[in-house]
């Protein structure tokens, strides 16, 4: 799969992707002794499981996901956070990193604030709870927020974070990527703009192979034409 060659195989909902000898993974379903794709996406096969990596779609929260959300409402003991999913996501005061008195939630987070949080739990009717009891979790001050398609997030992060590390290192930006497709960038104006362009570059070409190399070229190119963007 790696290296050169054409783009990976694109499958369409209803397309047969395997017989009864393979296990249906995400993006597929089993019916009448065969496995079919349920989503438009790229076919992958690993350890006898076929799955389809979707090319588009909404973000559906999974427990443990790191997400970037915006506070949209305040209750006496919780905040309601928009995490770019079909479901409202409450963050309870006891799950915040602060000691919050009842009715005092507005002192810590207000409507419009951006936060980095984790999905604590998702039940079978998709009721969601967020948590900020994590070293990574915080209120995001300054910087800028970028929104990409949630299905492209794994490509932006790369294998073991290879892609995002590359972008961080060559632009000198602080970057947080939420599984919900929101990305927070902070750094000086020039390098944030370059990092944003690099991320857009990855998003547009997400189905390509050898993308990390292409991004390396892209960043090197940008640096040559723009002069060196700040290594702040």
């Amino acid at each position: 799969m790696e290296g050169r060659g054409p783009v990976r195989q694109i499958v369409i909902p209803g397309e047969a992707v395997g017989g009864s000898d393979v296990k249906p993974g995400p993006g597929t379903f089993f019916e009448g002794g065969r496995v079919y794709a349920s989503q438009l996406g790229v076919l992958t096969q690993r350890d006898g499981t076929v799955s389809v990596i979707p090319l588009s779609g909404r973000y559906i929260p999974q427990p443990g996901d790191a997400v970037i959300g915006e506070v949209v409402d305040i209750g006496p003991s919780h905040w309601l956070v928009d995490i770019n999913s079909p479901y409202p996501a409450p963050l309870h005061a006891t799950e915040s990193p602060w000691h919050v008195e009842f009715g005092d939630t507005g002192r810590f987070l207000n409507v419009g604030d951006a936060i980095m949080a984790h999905v604590l739990s998702v039940d079978e009717i998709k009721r969601i709870q967020l948590t900020m009891q994590d070293r990574e979790a915080r209120r995001l001050k300054g910087g800028q927020l970028l929104e990409i398609s949630p299905t492209k997030v794994p490509r932006v992060i790369g294998k073991q974070g290879s892609m995002i590390t590359l972008i961080k290192q060559s632009t000198g930006c602080r970057i947080y990527v939420g599984q919900n497709g929101r990305i927070w960038l902070d750094g000086d104006d020039r390098s944030t703009a370059l990092a944003a362009r690099a991320i857009k570059f990855v998003e547009e070409r997400a189905q390509a192979v050898g993308l990390t190399e292409a991004v390396k070229d892209f960043l090197a190119n940008a640096r040559r034409t723009q002069g060196s963007p700040g290594r702040a």
Partner: peptide
């Protein structure tokens, strides 16, 4: 629908 990434049995 397929373009939106909605899971479905077939077109």
């Amino acid at each position: 629908l397929a373009d939106a990434g909605v899971p479905m049995k077939d077109l």
